[in-house]
């Protein structure tokens, strides 16, 4: 610091003749006494940004840590990156990935649709609908998903045949063996969907409750029909509260599908397990699965950003720039300054 201090004591730039004329030779900021009350003119001064030494120290320390981690990941041969690369796009792994995506999409969509219905039931005026919806959420939220999956898969043990007919009569439209109806896939979808519905019902109900009561009153006063009131007025506003938590749930579901390995259903995680049981390359193959989950989550996060942005229409005075727009703006302004400095 001492050398910097001595440097700073000397005038670094020669004062411009026009502005410097009235100033004392040491270049001090105060205008000379003689100028009286007239406001000092600082227009020709150069602005020196405040210095943040600790910010630099912190940045350097963290950068060092990041480098160290990256170095060890790259150089430690036990991560076996070549094995990861070899299996990352292998046919069996990709097939497992497709199954994972299929399970997520089907149970995600069905779960949220059922959750929406459950939320409406819970908010309805009928005490029966309210209590059925409440009980559904209560049961499915208070039992482990693992148990639910095993239960669905073993439904054939509890009920040998499943039939569709009119309750309390002998009328039967059709009848099947439970074990033929409930495959691994059906049990997985059933378990994940019903569990997801219980959680999403609460998320959607919370979103609907967050919309101001005045909005419903205004819509009713304008004679807007009930269905339109929900879809056009309430839901778009509820979406702002629903989306962040809903995406949390979907991302949770992506990884949550790995639990169906207990049904020996060949989704991503089960596939990887089968492979490493054979090849004994446990860590690299777990890494393969992990990297795919990271990829899916990253893609979902991008979707989340843009969908949330869409629904923030009118909620903020001006929409914030998207990362793309920000980048474009950055390059546009910097291109200009570069041109100026040249």
């Amino acid at each position: 610091m001492s050398s910097a201090a001595t440097k700073a004591a000397q005038p670094t730039t020669p004062a411009q003749p026009a502005a410097g004329a009235g100033l004392p030779p040491d270049g001090g900021g105060l205008p000379p006494e003689g100028t009286g009350r007239a406001a000092a003119d600082y227009s020709s001064y150069r602005v020196v940004a405040a210095k943040h030494p600790w910010r630099w120290v912190g940045t350097a320390a963290v950068a060092l840590g990041v480098l160290a981690v990256a170095w060890s990941l790259a150089t430690n041969p036990r991560w076996e990156w070549d094995v990861v690369a070899q299996w990352f796009t292998a046919q069996s792994v990709v097939n497992g990935l497709v199954e994972t995506l299929k399970l997520t999409a089907i149970s995600g969509i069905l779960g949220f649709v059922l959750g929406f219905i459950l939320a409406l039931m819970r908010l309805s005026a009928s005490p029966l609908l309210v209590s059925v919806s409440w009980t559904f959420s209560w049961i499915f939220r208070s039992t482990p998903l693992l148990v639910q999956l095993l239960l669905w898969y073993n439904l054939g043990y509890l009920y040998e045949k499943i039939s569709l007919g009119i309750p309390f009569t002998d009328v039967r439209f059709f009848e099947v063996q439970t074990t033929t109806l409930i495959s691994q896939f059906a049990a997985a979808v059933l378990g994940l969907t019903l569990n997801q519905a219980a959680y999403s019902a609460e998320i959607i109900r919370g979103g609907i409750l967050s919309v101001d009561q005045g909005q419903l009153e205004a819509a009713a006063a304008l004679g807007i029909p009930a269905w339109r009131r929900s879809t056009r007025i309430v839901l778009p506003q509820a979406m702002r509260a629903i989306l962040p938590t809903a995406f949390n749930e979907i991302i949770g579901l992506v990884k949550g599908t790995s639990i169906v390995y207990v049904l020996a259903y060949s989704e991503l995680f089960y596939t990887v397990q089968v492979i490493y049981n054979r090849t004994q390359q446990v860590l690299p193959l777990l890494l393969v699965a992990t990297l795919w989950y990271v990829v899916i989550t990253s893609v979902l996060s991008v979707f989340q950003y843009y969908i949330e942005r869409h629904y923030s229409k009118g909620a903020v005075r001006n929409l914030p720039l998207t990362p793309l727009q920000k980048a474009r703006k950055f390059f546009a302004t910097h291109a200009v300054t570069n041109r100026k400095s040249l």
């Binding site: 909005q215 009153e217 819509a219 006063a221 004679g223 007025i233 506003q237 629904y311 009118g314």
Partner: peptide, 18 residues
């Protein structure tokens, strides 16, 4: 209700619509 217009103290405009 379509024959009776109402104006509220808190406006109750739909914030997501222009």
């Amino acid at each position: 209700r379509t024959e009776i217009g109402m104006v509220f103290q808190n406006f109750n405009l739909f914030p997501h619509l222009t």
